[in-house]
Design a protein around this nucleic acid. Sequence first.
DNA 1: TTGAAAGCGCTAACAC
DNA 2: GTGTTAGCGCTTTCAA
Lengths: 336, 336
Amino acid sequence: MSKPTIKVLAKELGLAVSTVSKALRDSHEISQDTKDKVLKLAAQLNYIPNPYASSLRRQKSRTIAVVIPEVADSFFSIAINGIEEVAREKGYHVLIYLTHESLERETEILNEFKSGRVDGLLISVTRDTCSGTHITEAIEAGLPVVFFDRMCEDIKAARVLTDDYESSYQATRLLIERGCKKPAYLSISPNLSINQKREAGYLAAVNEAGIETSQARIISCDGPDDKITEQILILLRQPNRPDGIIASVEKLVPPVYFACKELGINIPEEIRLIGFTNLTASPILNPSLSTVTQPAFEIGKTAAALLFKGIEKTSFDLSREKLIIPSQLQLRDSTL
Amino acid sequence: MSKPTIKVLAKELGLAVSTVSKALRDSHEISQDTKDKVLKLAAQLNYIPNPYASSLRRQKSRTIAVVIPEVADSFFSIAINGIEEVAREKGYHVLIYLTHESLERETEILNEFKSGRVDGLLISVTRDTCSGTHITEAIEAGLPVVFFDRMCEDIKAARVLTDDYESSYQATRLLIERGCKKPAYLSISPNLSINQKREAGYLAAVNEAGIETSQARIISCDGPDDKITEQILILLRQPNRPDGIIASVEKLVPPVYFACKELGINIPEEIRLIGFTNLTASPILNPSLSTVTQPAFEIGKTAAALLFKGIEKTSFDLSREKLIIPSQLQLRDSTL
DNA sequence: TTGAAAGCGCTAACAC
DNA sequence: GTGTTAGCGCTTTCAA
């Protein structure tokens, strides 16, 4: 029992293939009677249209791509949830690609999209992306693109972001209000848009409070997890160590805990900590972690909805869109 | 500047499309000279073959599907990493579908695959899947399928699993050795294969230790997170409450911590805890969590490698394959 | 070694 | 309302 095609249905019913095709797509030119017959037989034979024949003919794939640095990160995995939800509603399929922060890989992937494999792209870029031209090229080739979370400032494309500057500013202010005189800001990937905004928010709060530059350290951590822990250990071993920490990405949270434990530094008594993270485990850490919680699911959903609008309405200028969904500051024991 | 096709290349070079096609696929029938010319022009025009034309003609898509209940779970997101890695090496694309434990959704998704959209399927089933016929149908329709982690016992298909029985047995033994007289086993979705094995491992250890059935409670939790916490609260409020807990899935870990905190029960002094989880945060929980850590990345990689073997070698009987990759018991403070 | 031609399964003009 | 026909871009005989 091989897969039935439109041709088989047509022959079986004594109709033309075009009639069957139209009937299946519920065209108004076809009589209800014929439609019923066609639909009935289609159901009976479990006819499933060949998506690639249709894609080839119509030059659209009903497929979108999601390109992200990493999936094993609570933000991205939750965002995918949101994306998948709206893709499913729209009857679209979702291809997933991981860049692992490699610009080269990202470029290869994007280049492939010029073939028409996907009708749209949701992307959260690598650390090094903004120096490349591959995204602009894809956009110019006609691909609808929406940045979510990590984006390139100077590429004219839609973006769905959270209020990185503002939430980082608030988080830093909180540390200062609670008594921190020497709050430090920890990052990876300095040239990432989200980092720059978070850093700027931090700096604004620090300056506003009149904290000397020498006491407001910005540390860029790098490398694998154990390497990061080492870098933080070095920071915390300094006699004039920070008394507050903003961990600007999830990945930095465990190393900070490890380092504090190793050195016997008490959180929050000796050092207060806030992390940018969506970890469900935040409330059960030791001590529980105050977080800037990003609206990951909403960002995914919104970005996807926006993309589909761009895909479906050609009159709609996607590239002008810029949506901000605020993060939430959740206070717990690490900033008591 | 529209997308160049093979036809354009052919015209430009004064060759036939078939010649160009063969040259691009590095056919031995084509002279090196011609190949060079074709490749050069292709690179110059940035020619990308239309994947759907090729898929239609060759009846294969170079695409696989990953169907999972949920992506916001450390096991699945890490597994996807492994899958994506080998797919990329093989030049395959990865479609992702989330079932959210809905059999209906899963059935719809699988039904669609009969169209030839994908060349293979990696699936971790829903709680209710095993009562359905959609997977068997897909296999019979010729789709190579590999189960990973969650599978259906009685479907004849390849599977890549971890040693659920054994690791649960070891975890339970550990609790008993450390002095637990009343270890409880917490699960969701009782009819899931992985749960049955973990439960059986638990029971074996409990029986072996001569613990009375009344003291060896198996609690099946259900519903959203706060509901689960409530169910655990009820369990822990009993005068004869457990003094050890096996949290058989990641989702149960936070509720156990919450409930213990709420009731002022000390881990591990009053109750020991082991969780099946890949959370990177396990070492920094309060107290740090002893875990059964599944080889998520390896399972993903292995399952994908197996699937590709099934896709590429028709002589290979995929359905007989059954690979077990052991989990690791990592002891931390929650079982001191 | 190259080319001509048929056709994968579907859709969209355009006839009737 | 229904049918005829010509492709979408590619691969694959088969012929030259």
